[in-house]
């Protein structure tokens, strides 16, 4: 089946039986009426999140304490977050836990923005049982930067950081046991990076361990 071995993970449905490999013909009406050329509009700035500044006692105290380490304190849809410099994330997390009662690390995750110089957003979500409040800490880091582990602050971070490492290839400095957790240990590549295709596999791993051709 030549169609199924097409690389690149195209999502287009395969042509229905009978038509063969012929590309579907365009309706004549579309071809007859080309869209009128658009006047050259000024390029739109890329849309950004319409976050508003977050001002509260907590935001002020964090800013006061960490000064330049805090890049922004914002809120969007009623959810507050702090953007910090890479090195300040851990002190902020520690401060929030010890001095502001954010005693529960809900999640650590990452978002890949391959076109940006600081490629990854590293996101920590913390919650305070006494104050019933949730805050996110966001850090922008470059590929290859090794953020400090949060395992010294919250034990939860162990598996969460292992998963971030597994999926994005972000190594956490000082992590006690940084191994892959969901993917096989000798798998090559980091699946949740944007340049990793949806159909992509570690061909060699699949052949060696499953004894089948991966189809790629």
């Amino acid at each position: 089946m030549a169609d199924e071995q097409k690389p690149g993970g195209s999502e287009a449905p395969s042509p229905p039986a009978g038509e063969g490999a012929k590309p579907p013909a365009k309706p004549a009406a579309d071809a007859a009426k080309p869209p009128p050329p658009k006047p050259a509009a000024p390029p739109k700035p890329p849309a950004t999140m319409a976050a508003t500044p977050w001002d509260s006692a907590l935001a002020r105290s964090v800013k006061e304490r960490f000064g330049d380490g805090i890049l922004a304190t914002s809120t969007y849809l009623g959810q507050d977050f702090v953007v910090t410099k890479p090195d300040s994330a851990m002190p902020v997390l520690e401060y929030l836990k010890l001095d502001a009662d954010f005693d529960y690390l809900v999640d650590i995750t990452a978002v890949d923005w391959p076109k940006r110089a600081e490629r990854f957003d590293l996101v920590y979500i913390v919650y305070s049982f006494p104050h019933n409040q949730r805050v996110r800490i966001k850090v922008q880091i470059a590929d290859g930067f090794e953020p400090r582990t949060a395992t010294g602050v919250h034990l939860t971070a162990n598996w969460l950081e292992r998963e971030v490492f597994d999926m994005f290839g972000i190594r956490f400095a000082g992590h006690p046991d940084l191994r892959r957790i969901l993917m096989p240990e000798d798998w090559q590549g980091y699946p949740l990076r944007k340049d990793y295709g949806i159909l992509q596999q570690d061909v060699r791993w699949v052949q060696e361990n499953l004894g089948i051709e991966s189809g790629q």
């Binding site: 849309a47 950004t48 999140m49 319409a50 969007y76 849809l77 809900v106 999640d107 978002v111 996110r136």
Partner: peptide, 30 residues
């Protein structure tokens, strides 16, 4: 619209959360 949200509910097993990032397209960015 472009943005992100974390919403969690009390699932039978505990806190089940979804952190969704939108880049303004029809597909979630993350």
């Amino acid at each position: 619209p472009v943005g992100e949200a974390y919403v969690s509910i009390e699932a039978p097993k505990g806190e089940l959360g979804y952190y969704v990032v939108s880049d303004g397209s029809t597909q979630p960015y993350r």
